[in-house]
């Protein structure tokens, strides 16, 4: 059956997310009748089965969410949310040492922004993923890290410096950028979890 994925199009690597989800749907043989669409206004959120909150500048994206009245429709969104890097910060319950914006509190986690330092410290690394035999190639760009997880949260991947991937109900939150590497396993996992 067709599935509709919305990618929050406020700022950041939106086109990479659109492309990654289109590839994943094709790999799953579910591209017919499905659509992956950019979401630019609050009214477009409800029609989707899944929502992706892309990477970008979390401060900028958070401000746009509020200016465009998207906070409430995202909080009330019944489908799954795929949150990447800045998106993970936006969906967290708390952000360490940052009072400039209040995160949405959809994922029961605390995150630390720019946990590894500045761009010079951005890195690529192969990760062990829970339930996967093959490692996952992860691209960390000025990435956050998860410093606390609540009871409902499953930890999917961690590195010595902290937790970098989690699941909670139908939501996925990752500190790195799966849309920038070729591997579509995480997108496929998210699509399966939507149970559309």
């Amino acid at each position: 059956m067709g599935v509709r994925i919305g990618v929050l199009d406020l700022q950041g690597d939106v086109s990479e997310h659109l492309l990654a989800f289109r590839e994943a749907l094709a790999l799953a043989g579910r591209d017919r009748g499905s659509s992956v669409v950019p979401i630019r206004s609050a009214g477009e959120i409800t029609g989707c089965d899944g929502l992706a909150v892309p990477g970008g500048e979390s401060t900028t994206i958070a401000r746009m969410v509020d200016r465009k009245g998207m906070r409430k429709p995202i909080l009330e969104f019944p489908g799954g949310i795929f949150a990447t890097c800045a998106g993970l910060i936006l969906l967290a319950s708390a952000v360490e040492d940052d009072r400039r914006f209040s995160p949405l509190g959809i994922l029961d986690v605390t995150v630390r922004r720019n946990a590894f330092g500045r761009q010079r410290e951005s890195f690529e690394q192969d990760l062990r993923f829970q339930g996967e035999d093959e490692p996952f190639h992860a691209v960390f760009i000025r990435a956050p890290v998860i410093t606390r997880t609540g009871a409902r949260v499953r930890i999917l991947a961690r590195i010595p410096r902290g937790i970098v991937a989690v699941a909670q109900e139908r939501h996925l939150g990752v500190a790195f950028h799966p849309e920038l590497s070729r591997d579509r396993r995480l997108h496929l996992k998210f699509l399966e979890g939507l149970q559309v």
Binding site: G12, V14, E16, G56, E57, C85, E121, E124, L180
Partner: peptide, 17 residues
Amino acid sequence: FGTELLKRGFASMQKGG
């Protein structure tokens, strides 16, 4: 560190800004 993907990826995060 400092790979082409990380450099271009950083630029991608600035898009629409």
